[in-house]
């Protein structure tokens, strides 16, 4: 046995004849099959989306042609029978309800998610996590009924108070309201965008909370400990570590919630009393959304009025798609979910 070491002999004269070689990969049959199956499922999702889009576009063309694209977008009326219809009020109402829902849902889900990941522990944590997921599973018609029968009653005094003291802000004005009347007319305050928005917020809080909780809980332990070791308060640690890391989850969850709020149908249908004018006064009776108009009108629709509804549906489809794509782009660019070097 020799104990000497070896010195590799490189070619003299610096001759370098090394060439990168081709590497051919041959997959095992199981892998091949798996690739094909997953590829199929993946393309199926894309296919369905394309189909829906194409279907809506084809069906919508007739109605949009008949009034013209500009009129279709700007008209505040829905009377396909007289060829006078447009989605201005519907889109405005949809966005109003969705934004109200978001204004209510964002602080609640942000706080809820932070409470679950950062403050609660043990059984409280698991019960809350489960409850949030359960909330997401409640059908929207149940929320709608709850809103109609219970919440509306209790929202009216709040709406009354808001309009009495902040009625000078156009948003909170209620036409026909008389602050001096000791017995307010409740009917003025019911079936409003505010109540619809609050109900929708309950539907989007679970998904938003759940997404934010997920991204907060992945904030790297090393960075958390680093912050605590510097004497950080809990809030200091959350502000410097958890929130910057969870930024993608916050934005993504919000966008997803917004997408859902825009498309919510049955709960809004139960609450809002439909009008076809742009209604800035969110506390006031009357509002509308694209989705609820479709649900409301399709029963009585003939070929042409159906095409008009399809056109409204197409507008909603495009809007939600745009929002969801924005959301996924933002999530993809953020650090959330990526492994930290720390």
């Amino acid at each position: 046995m020799t104990t000497a070491t070896y010195l590799p002999d490189y070619p003299v004269n610096g001759l370098d004849d090394a060439q990168p070689r081709e590497i051919t990969v041959s997959h095992a049959p199981v892998d091949q099959a798996f690739r094909q199956i997953t590829r199929l499922s993946g393309s199926f999702v894309l296919l369905i989306m394309l189909l829906v889009g194409t279907f809506l576009t084809i069906k919508a063309v007739r109605a949009i042609k008949s009034v013209g694209l500009w009129d279709f977008i700007t008209t505040q009326a829905w009377s396909p029978e007289t060829n006078h219809f447009g989605i201005a009020a519907l889109l405005f109402g949809t966005v109003t309800v969705a934004l109200i829902a978001l204004v209510v849902a964002l602080p609640l889900s942000l706080g809820g998610a932070l409470f679950i990941t950062e403050i609660s522990s043990g059984w409280a944590k698991s019960i809350l996590t489960g409850a949030i997921d359960l909330m997401a599973a409640v059908p929207s018609v149940v929320y709608g009924l709850f809103g109609l029968v219970f919440l509306q009653k209790h929202m009216v005094p709040f709406a009354y108070w808001l309009s009495t003291y902040f009625g000078w802000i156009p948003l909170f004005k209620v036409d026909g309201a008389d602050p001096k009347n000791p017995l307010p007319n409740d009917a003025l305050y019911t079936s409003s965008s505010l109540i619809g928005g609050v109900i929708v917020s309950m539907m989007i809080i679970p998904i938003m909370t759940s997404m934010m909780r997920e991204s907060f809980s992945r904030a790297p332990a090393g960075e958390r400990e680093g912050a605590y070791a510097l004497g950080a308060t809990r809030w200091g640690m959350i502000r410097s570590v958890v929130l910057p890391f969870g930024r993608g989850g916050i934005i993504g969850g919000t966008m997803l919630g917004l997408g859902r709020a825009l498309g919510e149908t049955i709960a809004v249908y139960l609450i809002l009393s439909p009008i076809f004018d742009i209604n800035l006064h969110v506390l006031q009776n009357g509002g509308n959304t694209v989705a609820m108009t479709i649900a409301l009108r399709y029963g009585e629709a003939n070929d042409f009025t159906m095409s008009a509804l399809m056109a409204a549906g197409l507008a909603l489809f495009l809007m939600t798609m745009a929002i969801n794509f924005t959301a996924s782009a933002i999530i993809a660019r953020s650090r959330s979910g990526a492994d930290s070097e720390a």
Partner: peptide
């Protein structure tokens, strides 16, 4: 103070901000 096995600077902060990160963390 404490220094950990794996370097754990705050990735969202610059070198400058990292050095004095104790200030915002402790208010």
């Amino acid at each position: 103070g404490m220094v950990f096995q794996k370097p754990n600077p705050f990735p969202a902060m610059s070198i400058y901000e990292n050095t004095i990160s104790a200030l915002p963390l402790t208010g």
